[in-house]
């Protein structure tokens, strides 16, 4: 089965062009291949480009990673609130503005607030990754109660749709991108899924 999606035109202005991601699960995958894929998925999920906004019950995004110095909560006392978008206090989009045009050049300025073609927000509370171990994140991601009720294909498509996630591999401004590539990450999700979503022994 091969599904080919071009994301951009589905959600936003037609002028925007994004890399195409191919969603093409393998015919089969062994447990070992699945665990191997998971270890790469964990590399991505635990990377600052992803984990900084997957803060679980905390509504404070984090600053961590090579360009941020010491790991700490987002400066300026930023709190995303129950809305996860800062509506109660200071909207994320006040600084993380929406960038619909010229997306490849959206984030040239070092240390400026990253922007994408959708509203900036924290991940849902259930997606609690920051500082979590590989098996903890794995257990979350395969639990439909915690992953938004998604199966493997839906997780892959979610990755394809959510433009903040695309940003993680093209963060600009001298930031370190998430490891591998979006396509490789999607492929790993599919391998892991076909292998039965195995998690490492803790």
């Amino acid at each position: 089965m091969t599904t080919r999606l071009i994301v951009a035109s589905l959600t936003i202005a037609a002028s925007v062009v994004f890399a195409e991601v191919e969603i093409s699960p393998p015919e089969s995958a062994t447990q070992a291949e699945g665990l191997d894929a998971w270890s790469r998925i964990f590399d991505v999920a635990s990377h600052p480009r992803c984990a900084n906004c997957h803060t679980g019950p905390s509504d404070r995004p984090m600053w961590s990673g090579p360009t941020y110095g010491t790991t700490r909560p987002h400066g300026m006392n930023i709190q995303a609130g129950d809305s996860r978008m800062g509506v109660e206090y200071l909207q994320c989009s006040t600084c993380h503005t929406t960038k619909d045009t010229d997306w490849d050049n959206a984030n040239l300025m070092p240390h400026a607030a990253p922007r994408v073609a959708m509203g900036w927000a924290l991940a849902p509370v259930e997606a609690d990754w920051f500082g979590k171990t590989s098996d903890e994140i794995c257990a979350q991601l395969r639990d439909p109660d915690l992953n938004g009720g998604r199966d493997m294909l839906e997780i892959a498509e979610h990755l394809n749709h959510d433009l903040i996630l695309h940003w993680a591999w093209n963060p600009g401004g001298g930031r370190e991108p998430a490891p591998y590539s979006l396509q490789e990450h999607v492929d790993d999700i599919l391998i892991w899924g076909v292998a039965g979503m195995p998690c490492p022994e803790s």
Partner: peptide
């Protein structure tokens, strides 16, 4: 900081084309 449709926005971060 300015308002765009009533909401605070850092005008140094918003491209005029957007």
């Amino acid at each position: 900081t300015v308002h765009v449709d009533g909401f605070a926005v850092r005008s140094c971060q918003l491209a005029v084309g957007d």
